[in-house]
Every structure is written in structure tokens, then in C-alpha cells.
């Protein structure tokens, strides 16, 4: 076959090749449509559900402390204390709890009352615990809990109670629990 015939033959086969490619493309589109349709039909037969539960943590704050004057009418020539006490938090068995008592005056120095920390749920507060200050103090308690697994948490401060040293005689101070 001459080269002219070969070139003519090549040009004639180009349209046929394009037709084949087009047909292949159409078939591909049809197949894709069928698959998408099947997938959509499948999705109509599923339903998503769930169950929920709200989680929160244990509250280890001590109860709001109370203040009780030991000797309201003290005149025995000594400084009389007040008893500050509080309810312990409910903690799991095997936990250890210690308490820190803090007194904040309306003006002046914040004090950590001793003995702190302590495992006791009450303490005697003397005027000397307030540095003999006669300012009213706001007293709160925090708990430090060591859980059975070893984690150690310190609670937020408890509710508060007021305590104040009041001068009785010239030299003596007695603790009072103002409202």
C-alpha cells in the first residue's frame, strides 16, 4: 500500500475511534447513575439512634462551718475561744481527708488557722489565731482528699461563717460569732 493510501486510511479511522470513545463515556455515565441511585435507595433504609447519660464529678466540699462561742459571758480573766465545726464530705471508702481552715478579715491579713491541715472536723479558734485582731473574720474550710487510686483533689472553699475577737475587760479578748 502506498504512503498516500496509508495516510487516507488513518484519517478515515479517526472518526471511528472518536465514536468508540464517546460510546464508552456514555456507558460510564449510565453505570455511575445506576450506582448512585442504588446507594441512595440503600440510605433510605437506615436509622441513626443513640442513648445518652450526663456525667459529673463528686462534690468534696466540706459542709458550711458553724461557730459556737465557748463562754459567752467569760469573765474568768482569760481569752475565750469559739468552736468552728463542719460536716465532712461524702467520699469513697479508702479515701483520706484533711481540712484547712482559712480566716479572712474585712481588712488585714488572711490567715490559715492552725492546726492545718488536720483530719478533725472541728477546731477551737482563739483570738491569737486572728493575731489578736478584733476585726470580723470570714471563716471557710477546704478539704483535700486522697482517693483510693492515688489521685489528690482539693475542694473549693466551703460556705462561710463569721467569727470575731471582742475585747471584754481591759486585757482580755473573747471570741464571738456575729451573724
Amino acid at each position: 500500500m502506498s504512503s498516500l493510501d496509508e495516510r487516507a486510511d488513518g484519517r478515515a479511522t479517526a472518526p471511528a475511534g472518536r465514536a468508540v470513545r464517546r460510546a464508552t463515556g456514555v456507558l460510564g455515565v449510565l453505570l455511575a447513575l445506576v450506582m448512585v441511585g442504588s446507594g441512595t435507595a440503600w440510605a433510605w433504609w437506615t436509622d441513626a439512634r443513640s442513648v445518652n447519660a450526663t456525667a459529673g464529678t463528686i462534690d468534696i466540699r466540706p459542709g458550711t462551718p458553724t461557730c459556737v462561742t465557748t463562754d459567752p459571758d467569760a469573765s474568768d480573766g482569760s481569752n475565750s475561744p469559739a468552736t468552728i465545726s463542719w460536716a465532712p464530705p461524702v467520699v469513697p471508702a479508702g479515701s483520706t481527708v484533711t481540712y484547712t481552715v482559712t480566716a479572712v478579715p474585712d481588712t488585714g491579713t488572711t490567715r490559715t488557722l492552725t492546726p492545718s491541715p488536720s483530719t478533725a472536723t472541728s477546731m477551737l479558734v482563739y483570738p491569737s489565731n486572728f493575731g489578736d485582731s478584733t476585726r470580723p473574720h470570714t471563716v471557710t474550710v477546704t478539704a483535700t482528699v486522697t482517693f483510693p487510686g492515688g489521685a489528690v483533689w482539693t475542694s473549693p472553699a466551703s460556705g462561710s461563717v463569721k467569727a470575731q475577737a471582742v475585747r471584754a475587760l481591759i486585757f482580755w479578748l473573747n471570741m464571738r460569732c456575729p451573724a
Binding site: S50, V51, A53, T54, A55, D59
Partner: peptide
């Protein structure tokens, strides 16, 4: 402490 979360178990 004081945190609050929601646990969800999904089932289809």
C-alpha cells in the same frame, strides 16, 4: 471538679 459532660452511645 464541677465539670459536666454528656456520654452518647450511637446505634444505627
Amino acid at each position: 471538679q464541677g465539670g459536666a459532660v454528656v456520654v452518647t452511645v450511637p446505634v444505627t
